[in-house]
Amino acid sequence: MSGQNGILVKVKDVEKTFRRGSEEIHVLSGLNLEVAEGEFLALMGPSGSGKTTLLNLIGGLDRPTSGSLEVSGERIDQMSGRQLAEWRARHVGFVFQFYNLLPVLTAERNVELPLLLTHLTKAQRRRHVHTALEVVGLSHRARHYPHTLSGGEQQRVGIARAIVTDPTMILADEPTGDLDRKSGDEILSLLQALNREHGKTIIMVTHDPHASARATRTVHLDKGQLSMEAPA
């Protein structure tokens, strides 16, 4: 699954510029980063440092202005929109700060969403959903709608949705940002278990040093560039 030398993600000379009116904003400037397969990487930095932009680029949600992005040996910056959507479905599981569950669907239907793009039968999809909910410890809440779940439970449903297709990597954007300390710890433990026991590569954006302490490596971004790197 990985590229050369166990490197899963290779970000090379990536620049990202946004335009606001006549003003050009350089969010990422010549950034280089490599993430190994099986790594749990924390991306830290102040607001506006480009953490989420970098995560979006690695997850194929956005395109770099220049530079190259390689995941599992594939140049995702050169893919068409349709190819990128297919690639995301197969390789990436997203966990969002505000869970981003569809309020009109039950927990199990939310988890099932990425599987609707596969050729699995209904029974097979149901089995996968059940397994994912068991991994996050929420199989007993499968038929509940998001508004009847606590924040921590909603985030666990979000994680179940992220892992249900058994993706190559999990990208988490401030996964504990909207949770109290106890629920946040539970989510971090879950992510850590996914990394350690299931070998999932995880890239997590966070402000919280307590959260980054759970990662195997932490990189800091400032003004669109890597400022320092620290192993856990």
Partner: peptide
């Protein structure tokens, strides 16, 4: 809008 973003993020194509 956000939900549409989630659908696209999990792999739903624009079409």
């Amino acid at each position: 809008t956000g939900e549409l973003g989630v659908l696209k993020a999990v792999g739903f194509s624009d079409g």
